[in-house]
Each structure stands twice: as structure tokens, then as C-alpha cells.
Write a protein that binds this DNA or RNA. Structure first.
Lengths: 341, 341
DNA sequence: TATAAAAATGTAAACGTTTAGATCATCTCG
DNA sequence: CGAGATGATCTAAACGTTTACATTTTTATA
């Protein structure tokens, strides 16, 4: 009933635990007749080495923590998938944690991950100031930030060009002839929220289009807020002819609102979204979006982390910026009819 | 530079490690003046207890393993979300693993999870025969199967009424007047694949509609296969007037194929899908689906597991079957025009 | 065949906690 | 005031590995 230990194996094979350990870890230097015998005994007892005990002495766990803010946003499972795959290749396991955008939960989770002695941490933080990372930094545990930067600490970061993408999106609308371009932006205390807004603003500036306050609405990156903000835009006296939604979920909310209130996409209003979504190809006209390489984002994050975990080397802050691509479909075409006046 | 241990705390607070341990674990029986002092020292040294060492002696890790076959299927993040939330409430952590539908990877992962001494396992297996679970069973580690059953072992299972849902879906089509009803079913060696097909078959039987081989196509639950099978159905001499797709991804593929080949949804062909998806509300007409309570599925799974992990009690195999709900939208209305002859 | 060198194996400490049982301190009550 | 009882604290073993170092065995060489 008690799990067999390395000692049980050793006894039965008539060798010392050290020798058994050596064959388990494939370190060589064991006579092959003995090795055979040991392998047989392991099989016979269905012995499985205890990683907890191993971690105890080696002081590494081969486990990384991954903290994301919203598992229901399809963006994150994709980056997690990239992380996980890359991690497993190198023999690492992933503990996945979801903060639900709560800085308090995030702090708690970090604490617990530290208790578990994770070898590294990949995080999309719910609080970019980053004080919650202090204990992680103190313990010299490698961290990589994904999608959202950490302000007050030097941590490696991998993200896509938010400004770039937003700029492209906005410019695309402008080049289609739009002048009244609204944005449903994200929270301004987050990197993506802020940078995407900046991209929008710059594009307007560059093309000499005034930025109107009433065209700048702020959501929380969740569906509901996209929905509500769209309604607000529709109730404006001077409605915009185009909307730029700053993330996938808000785009979804926006789309739902459009059909709900009968604001005709592609006729009365153009729309471009940040991040692709399944739905994009199914609305009519199909939705133009800025799309990001999520899986790659995850892979890059782990690669960076891995380097830090192995070469405990340089502690320079590195930034990895992947490029977004605009996927032009049909939702931004300006129909001459009523959109321009 | 070296992480502070309980001993460092003990020394500095001038007490024994036992006392420190007691305050860390809030076991009481420590004079409050001493407790204060110890707490201060912990703060001062930024001491964090080492869960690895604790697990070593307590022989529990407060960690569960979750194995899913496809992280890119939006179904799973939702159930994982349910599991995770429930788990955290009880102080458990979740190691998430993705097999990519590979039984080999699954076996490997199980081995590693055992090495890590997880306290329990929740699994949607890629191989329902379940031999890969032998070592888990041997070690008396609680297991709960989600969404797919385990054939050869007595493990608790939580799923939704696959047959029920498929029956409802098919009947819905029949009651709309359809007689030529095709199914794009899943792999028949999986519970959902098989049961959903049975539901389809029973409904046909009950309403005296012959089951035609050419209307029964088999996919692999991934998007591509739904796409291809739809094309096959379209190329049939005697096309079906309705299609039942047995999971979300295949529904998506089917929809893409429909628009691609110009097979008009709701006019020439009706469609009902198993599992809801974002897209459903955005196609025209909106898609009728059988919807499952995924989050609840995850919650139920953890609750079951938790019971097993704590009361090491009864080892009867329990089945938890949640009910699917059909969400009627407009994609199944039979237009008199050409669909009936 | 003796001896040095190399290879194989063994011994035992260490990893950082928890916890049973021992010990010490304090309190209660006659 | 002293004997128990109760409460607080301590000591040390245990958890299952890895690994530095010591020891033994084998091999190579003269």
C-alpha cells in the first residue's frame, strides 16, 4: 500500500540507492548487468521517482508559473498553448493561474507560486506598476511579461506592436476616406490600452484629423463594455462613420450592439478591430482586423524565460516586439451613400 | 542571497522551528507575544515557506493535474476555468496539460504528473480504453473523467447528456419537416462521438426515417474535417436538407464551407450544431445549437474530485450527467421553396 | 603478478519542513 | 504551598531523493 521508494528498489536489486539514482537519471557509469537488473526491479515494483524529493535536494522544480488575467478571452489560451508546448519540449511543466484581472488575486497567486518554488514566471499582469513582483525579483526568479509591461522593474517583455497595429488600423480607416473615427479603447493604465490609443491618436495627427473627445470611449476589454460604448456612439448627435475597437472582446460586443440597434455595418458605419476573432469571417461584410501572432507570443515568452533560467547570466531588460498584421476584409469600405456628407 | 528558511526565522526570533511552523500554519497554542515577534521576523526576512519541503513530509501537494486534449477548442478553456476556480477556493493548484489528442503524450504526461505527486487528476482522455490510467489507479489517486468516459476502469465521470442533446437536435430538425438529415459525427471510439451519433440514430428511428450511409460522415472534431465533410455532402447527388454537426469546431468548418461553396444556410440547407459558439449569433440566419454548461462541468468535476481526495471513502463509480439545452435560433427553419420536393 | 589508474559502487549528509513525544512553565485549587 | 493539570515550547526523527566523497572492484601496464 505504501508507494515504493528508491530504497525499496535498491534493496530488491541488491545495490545502493546511489546506484539506482544513477540509472534513473541516466548518468552512466553503471555496469550494464546491474543496470538491467535495476530496470527490471523498477518495472516490477512499478516504481515512480518522487519529483518532490528530487526538487528538494536539487532546488529546482522544472515548473514554471503562468499568470493570465482572463482565461475566457480566447487570446490567452492561444498564448498559453504556445508557452506550454515550448515548455514541454524543454521538460518544464506549467502551472496555470487566472487572476480574473484582480491585482489582489494576482498578488496571492504570486505568493503561492513562490512557495511552490517555480523556476520561472510568465505573467500578463493585472497591475502594471508591478510592486506585486517585488518578492519574485528579490529571489532572483526569472520573469517574463507578456502583452503587458511592468513599469517599475526590469523584466523581459514580449509583446506585439500595439501602437503600430493601432496606427495601421486607424490609417486604414483614414485612407478609406473616413474622418469621423471613434475609438473604443481599453483601460489607460494598461500597456495595450494606452499604446493602442496612442497609435490611434498619432494616425489622426499625421493626417490632420482632429481628435474629438466624444469619439473616445473607454471600455474594460470585456464584451459588455464594447456593447455599451457602441450604443453610446450611436446615440451621438454627430455619429462617427467608423469605429476602432481596441480588443477582440470589445469588438464582439460592438458587433452585437450594431445588429441590435440596427446600425448597419459597412453601410452606415465601418469597423476595424484589434485582434482577430472567429466571428470576423462570418459577419457581413467580413470584418477587417489587426491580427497578432498569439502562439508565437507564447513561444517567444518561454524561450526568453528559458534563457534566463539556464544561463543565470545577464540581467539586461530585453524587449521582444512581434509585428501585428492587418487582415483586410470588407468592413471598412466607405459606401458613398450616406456615410460622407 | 540564500533563501531564508524556517531555521533562520527561528534563530532570529529565538524560538524553535517547531514554534515557527505552528504560527505559519496557524495552529494556535503559541503565546501571542512570541507569535508577534515571529511574524515580525518573517516580514523582516521576507521569508516564504517552502511548499516542496512541506509536501515532502505531509505527502500531499495540494496540486491537481488537468489533462485536456485540445486547448484550442474553446470548449476546454471554459471547463478548465470552472475547475480552476473551484480548485482555488479549496486551496488547490492546477497543472494544466494538453495532449493534442495524442495517447502517447497523454501517457507521458500521466507519468510526469505522478512523479509530481498530484493529489488528484481530472482528465478528458485521448484514449478511452484507459490503460494509461493503470498507474494512477494503482496508486489510489482519485481521478475524474470529464466529457469522455473511461471504459475499463471505475472512475467517476461527469458529462452532459450527449445522446439526449443529439436526440433533441435531430428531433428538432425532423419536427421542422426535414427528412434528409445528414450528420457529421465525431470519432466513434470516443464517448461524445459515439453517443451523439446514437442520439441521432434513435431520433431517426423514432420518427421512422431511414438512416442513410451516405448521410453519415465522420470527422475528427476539428475544424478542417467539418469543412471537408460539408463539401462531400454538397457533392452528393441527393443532397441532405439538413446537417447536424457533432461539435463546435466541425460546425465552424461546416459554416465556412457553406459560404465558400454557396450552399445557402437556412434556404437550401438547415444546420444545427452541438455546442454553442460565438459565431452562432452572427451568421444569417442565426445558428440553432445544442449548448452545454461547460463551466459547470468543470466545477462539478472538481467537486467530485475533491470529495474523493478528502474522504478517501467509497470507491463506487459515480456518474454526473448535466443536461444540455437546445438554443433555438433560426438556422433550422425549413423554407418551402426548394428544400422539400 | 604487482601496481597504478580507472571504473563502479557505496556511505552518509543534506535539502526545509512537520510533528510526535519530551520537557518546561504556568495555572488551579485544595 | 504543593500536586496536578494544562499550556507552551523544544528536540529530533522522518519524508525520498541527490551527490560529494570514500571505498571497492576491475582493468591496464609494466
Amino acid at each position: 500500500m505504501h508507494k515504493p521508494t528508491i530504497e525499496d528498489v535498491a534493496k530488491l536489486a541488491k545495490v545502493s540507492t546511489a546506484t539506482v539514482s544513477r540509472v534513473i537519471n541516466k548518468q552512466g557509469g553503471v555496469k550494464s548487468s546491474k543496470e538491467q537488473r535495476i530496470l527490471e526491479v523498477i518495472e516490477e515494483l512499478a516504481y515512480i521517482p518522487n519529483a518532490v524529493a528530487r526538487s528538494m535536494v536539487r532546488k529546482i522544480t522544472n515548473t514554471i508559473g503562468v499568470i493570465i488575467p482572463d482565461i475566457n478571452n480566447p487570446f490567452f489560451p492561444l498564448v498559453v498553448s504556445g508557452i506550454e508546448q515550448q515548455a514541454r519540449k524543454k521538460g518544464y511543466f506549467t502551472i496555470l493561474c487566472n487572476t480574473n484581472e484582480s491585482p489582489e488575486i494576482e498578488e496571492e497567486l504570486i505568493q503561492i507560486l513562490l512557495e511552490r518554488s517555480v523556476d520561472g514566471l510568465i505573467i500578463t499582469t493585472a497591475n502594471e506598476y508591478g510592486h506585486q513582483l517585488q518578492p519574485v525579483i528579490d529571489r532572483r526568479i526569472p520573469v517574463v511579461a507578456v502583452d503587458r509591461q511592468i513599469r517599475n522593474y526590469e523584466v523581459d517583455t514580449v509583446l506585439v506592436g500595439n501602437m503600430d497595429g493601432a496606427y495601421q488600423a486607424t490609417r486604414h480607416l483614414i485612407l478609406q476616406g473616413h474622418k469621423k473615427i471613434a475609438i473604443i479603447r481599453g483601460p489607460q493604465n494598461t500597456t495595450p490600452g494606452y499604446e493602442r490609443f496612442v497609435g490611434y491618436r498619432r494616425a489622426l495627427e499625421d493626417y490632420n484629423i482632429p481628435l474629438l473627445d466624444e469619439y473616445v470611449l473607454e471600455g474594460d476589454f470585456k464584451e459588455e463594455s464594447g456593447y455599451l460604448d457602441t450604443q453610446k456612439l450611436h446615440s451621438l448627435q454627430d455619429r462617427p462613420t467608423a469605429i476602432f475597437t481596441a480588443n477582440n472582446l470589445m469588438t464582439l460586443g460592438c458587433l452585437k450592439a450594431l445588429t441590435k440597434i440596427g446600425w448597419v455595418l459597412g453601410e452606415e458605419v465601418s469597423l476595424i478591430g484589434f485582434d482577430d476573432l472567429d466571428v470576423a469571417e462570418f459577419v457581413n461584410p467580413q470584418l477587417t482586423v489587426v491580427s497578432r501572432p498569439m502562439r508565437q507570443l507564447g513561444e517567444a515568452a518561454f524561450d526568453l524565460l528559458y534563457e534566463k533560467m539556464t544561463h543565470q547570466g545577464e540581467w539586461t531588460k530585453r524587449h521582444y516586439v512581434l509585428s501585428p498584421k492587418i487582415k483586410i476584409r470588407q468592413s471598412c469600405v466607405l459606401r458613398p451613400s450616406k456615410t460622407m456628407e
